[in-house]
């Protein structure tokens, strides 16, 4: 019986062996599935008249992304930050002109924290506040103002929607500094914007 079907058996066995070869090769290779998640954010700063194309002495000149708090008397409360420019640039003006405005540029919800890279100079404290803007913006923002320092990440918003339309959604962040008997120093600190996708 076996001999009778010998050729068929050999044929089928050879075929199975050949068919299994590419299978073995497939199993030997990592399979990679990209998931189309785009995680991204944008931070905008105030733009004063003329900053886009400064051309006269009255213009503030080219802007940097640096911001500064200035107190000339040494003791000031609720100082608002301004862009660092050649001739004095745009400043925060309460919630109407926030210093930072965040939008979600990806397709998953975002959360964001801020932290300074090192401790603030003696006599200076900084507070941060945030509010949601845009129709359908369900992001969680800061209620009462919270301190911004180098010891704890300040959660400025959570679950910021993806921006399905330009009208929705953004987060306005305002900063305030208090100076108490501070004199004769120009100090620089970095703020780190930490984001996490939060879907």
């Amino acid at each position: 019986m076996v001999w009778k079907h010998f050729r068929l058996i050999v044929f089928v066995a050879a075929f199975i062996a050949l068919a299994a070869m590419p299978l073995a090769e497939w199993a030997n290779t990592a399979v990679i599935f990209n998931v189309p998640v785009d995680t991204g954010f944008t931070i905008t700063l105030p733009l004063g008249a003329g900053e886009a194309n400064a051309s006269s002495a009255s213009d503030p000149g080219p802007a940097t992304a640096d911001i500064n708090f200035t107190c000339v008397t040494g003791t000031c409360t609720r100082v608002e930050p301004c862009l660092t420019t050649a001739f004095g640039g745009s400043c925060q003006a309460g919630a109407a002109v926030p210093i930072f405005q965040y939008t979600n540029a990806g397709n998953v919800n975002l959360s964001m924290t801020l932290i300074f890279n090192s401790s603030l100079p003696s006599g200076i404290t900084v507070g941060v506040n945030s509010s949601a803007s845009g129709v359908g913006n369900n992001a969680v923002t800061i209620g009462p103002e919270i301190p911004l320092n180098n010891s704890m990440e300040a959660m400025i918003f959570q679950e910021l929607n993806t921006t399905a339309s330009p009208a929705c959604c953004s987060i306005n962040v305002t900063l305030y500094a208090n100076f108490t008997s501070v004199s004769g120093l120009v100090e620089q600190r970095l703020i780190t914007h930490n984001s996490t996708n939060a879907n």
Partner: peptide
């Protein structure tokens, strides 16, 4: 306003068998 900072990664996640 002007956009000073902003970046994103795509894809942000991948499954590897």
């Amino acid at each position: 306003r002007w956009a000073a900072v902003g970046y994103g990664t795509f894809p942000s996640e991948v499954i590897v068998l």
